[in-house]
Design a protein around this nucleic acid. Sequence first.
DNA 1: ATGTCACGCTCCGCGTGA
Length: 262
Amino acid sequence: MAFTLATWNINSVRLREGLVCKLLQEEAPDVLCLQECKSPVEKIPTEAFRDLGYTHMVARGQKGYNGVAILSKLPITEVGAHDFADLGHARHVAAQLENGVTIHNFYVPAGGDVPDRAVNEKFGQKLDYLTQMRDHFHAESPKKAILVGDLNIAPREDDVWSHKQLLKIVSHTPIEVEHLSAAMDAGDWVDVTRQDIPEGLLYSWWSYRARDWDAADKGRRLDHVWATSDIAAAAHSSRVLRAARGWEQPSDHAPVFASFDL
DNA sequence: ATGTCACGCTCCGCGTGA
């Protein structure tokens, strides 16, 4: 069975219902994982998505912040949600396809501005969240699984516009990269995007604050697609839909795609 | 380094989070 999957931090699914529909119509992934829905589950505009063939959804939501949803043309069943670091936030949901593949959709905490847990509680929460992800995957040993989402970390030097200038900026500090790598190793996860696109600068997020995000191109690769090593070789055709960052009233993130032949 | 967004709440701006 072959399928295509996309992950997109939408920064309000209600405000950008039209952009979600545009993506579904023009790109037609079988599965779309959304983060930062900023909506209770019952207020997600599912009808428009259903009309486009996305008749299945699993989601976790809360008012105003966070929130994750998996929209699918293929039948899915929910297989749980975790509240790592006990934040009381809707940052993860998991679904299973009929072929037995599990899809984890994550929105890892951003971590605040100061990369020091002694003075910034949010940074500590981000590190703790990643540590609990690591411990969970160490205990679970996931198989036939895909993990996507806004992980709020750009791990590689070529995942940011300036490695040197971002070393002390939250999202690219060595301690965050270490924590992310530990979670990755614990679940035997493979970075599918970088398996497909091993070389060169690659971003999925550009700040709203830039005068001209496209010209400045000061991006970061915060959005990821991983797969467990047993299915990673089935992945192909990874890409970032950079054009979506230029759509009208856009999200500050662009969708990231991968396809699997299983 | 603090430029832009989106949210909820209480009002029609402000604080918070990113």
